[in-house]
Every structure is written in structure tokens, then in C-alpha cells.
Amino acid sequence: MLQMIMSAVMLGLIWSVMTIGVYITFRILGIADLTVEGSIAMGGAIAAQAIYSGSDPYWAAFLAILGGMAAGLATGILHTKLKIPALLSGILTMIALYSINLRILGKANLSLLRMNTVFSPFKEMSFIQNKAFAGWGISHFMGVIIPAALCVLGIIILLYWFFGTEIGSAIRATGNNSQMARAQGINTNNMIMLGLIISNGLVALSGALIAQQQGFADIQMGIGSIVIGLASLIIGEVLFGKRGFFSRLLSLVLGAITYRIIIAFVLDRGMSPNDLKLFTALTVAFALSLPVIKSSVQQLVKGIREGR
């Protein structure tokens, strides 16, 4: 049980980086950006290939971020300069990235077995190898959880600062009301591009961390990730509120962890892993339709009260 929860926390933390990326496009910019499906795999592919070719794992993660940012830029150009609808722009980049990721990986799957990763130095720390963790059998998880938590905290602080600056405010205004933003002299095209770049940089970083944690990168690893991101985002909003920007960012992390716990739980109850994506998609569909369901339930209750 403890192991199951620790595993969920570990995965939740790593995936929360991509959830934060999805939040930037979906909630701040108001765009459903499918680029993430490609950029998460791209992050994994770049990091794996770099480590495999002998690079430092931190450098590999940095390269992954750059790759993701380039993917975001591509979608941004398609959308703002070439006026292709946002959804389609994301799909185009995602499809293109499939081929690009294959080229980066050289094959469908690249193993990092016995290679050093960003987590290796932490796993060897005596603090993490202590008796208590070892006794519970969670040293392995703590070796990922602690650095991942620090990384996520750093990202949250950085984003909290950034979205409070003049440029960050301009991005928020663009997503909230682009007509008003332009009337206030904001170059909304550039702001949308910037948002996509930051978002996909984070998503690729998440992919790089996932690959390093699981010990391999796979061309398929992005499939369905947008829905996982959305599910985590919505769970976070519903369960942990949306007051203030800082608590919103924190709620994304808690949402990502909760999502992993739910998944671990239903798998433990005997659900087939093959049904996971269906389950996640249904959860998201349900959560997104909550407002409609709520109002029709209210109508119904009202109707019954009035005796119709």
C-alpha cells in the first residue's frame, strides 16, 4: 500500500510538470494544444538519445526543454502567422513530431538501462539510503520524489513570478480577452507564441524526466498525454480549489498526484491496463461536462418542485 502510494506520488510529481504546461495553454491562453502529445515524447527522445550518447543527464534535460520550446514555436507560427486554427496547428505539429522523434531515437524504443540519470546522484545519497526508507522499501521512490519535488517547486515559484511581470500579465490578458489586449497595445500573436513555447518546454522537460525515471524512451509515450494532463488539471481544480495563482499551481501538482493514486487504485481493483485510456477519457468528459450536468439537474429539481 505504502509502495503503491509512493509510486503514485513519484509519477504524479513528474507528470505534474506537464500538467502545468497544459494549464498554461488550456486555462491561461484558452487553447487546447495537442502539440504536447508530440513534445512530451520529444522530450523523452532527446533526453534518452543525449544520455545514450554520453551527455550529462542535466544537460540532456536542458536540451529536451529547448526541443519542446521549438515545437511550441512551430505551433505558434502555424496558428498566429499562418492563421490555422489552434487545434489543427497543434495536431499538425504533433504528427510532424512523430517522424522527428523517430529520427531522434533512431528506433521506436531506446533503453537507458544502467545509464546515469538526473536521479542517480539522489538515489545514492546516504539520506535517501537510510534505514527507515530502506526498511519500508521506498528508497527507490524517494530518490525520485525528492529531486522531482524540488524541481516542481522551483518551476512553480518561477512561473508565479513570471505571470506577475508585465509580460506575464500581457499573456494572461491575451488569453482572457484578446480584443482588449490588442486595444491596450499588446502584441497578442507574440504572447500566444510565448505561452505555447513555455508550455511545450515544460511538457518536454516532463517527458525527459519520465524517460529517465522509467529507464527508456518510447515513440508512443505521448499518446493520450493531453487527456492525462487535462484530467490532472480538472481533478486539481475540483478538489483543491482555484483561489489565488500560487494555490492554483499547487492544485495542479496535487491533481496530478491524485490522478495517479486513482489510477493505481482502479488497477489494483482489477481494471485492465488496456482500459486505462478509456477510463481517463470518460473521467475528463464527465468533469468537463459538470457545468451542463449541474444546470440540467437543477432544472429537473426545479421542475419536480413546481410539480411539472
Binding site: 506577475g164 508585465e166 509580460i167
Partner: peptide, 11 residues
């Protein structure tokens, strides 16, 4: 800030 260059100063 209309017409001014927006920077990384606090908003």
C-alpha cells in the same frame, strides 16, 4: 502600460 515596452518588471 499601453504603448510602453513590456518587460520582466513586476506588473
Amino acid at each position: 502600460r499601453r504603448g510602453k515596452r513590456r518587460s520582466l518588471r513586476w506588473g
